[in-house]
Amino acid sequence: MSSNALIKGSLQTIILKLLEENEKMYGYEITQKVKELTAGEIKITEGALYPALHKLEAEGLLTTEIQQVDNRVRKYYSLTKDGQKEVSFKLAELQSFVESMQRIINPGLKPELGI
């Protein structure tokens, strides 16, 4: 399983990317989707998820919608216009970071190969 510190640094990017693909999601659904996509390799803890969702909401990148589901209230998150713009920026940033890390780990790899 990946280290929590590594996940924490990319949590916002993960949330934004998932919401870009799924239109709207609720907290628990996000944790399950990440677990499913990574075959349990990455587990988002609740302790990190909700503060991250609230932070993205405060930054205006996410908007919320309250819905009644099975006699309880569910809060759905979706991307705002600013959030949609931010996804590509965050993904490019992460991609560049991963490439840089690969160059450090494998100095023999040529950057022009785009590995």
Binding site: Y26, G27, Y28, E29, E46, Y50, I66, V69, D70, R72, V73, R74, K75
Partner: peptide, 12 residues
Amino acid sequence: EVLAEVYDHYVS
């Protein structure tokens, strides 16, 4: 808001 979110997480 927090109560609803925590409750929904528990039930889900």
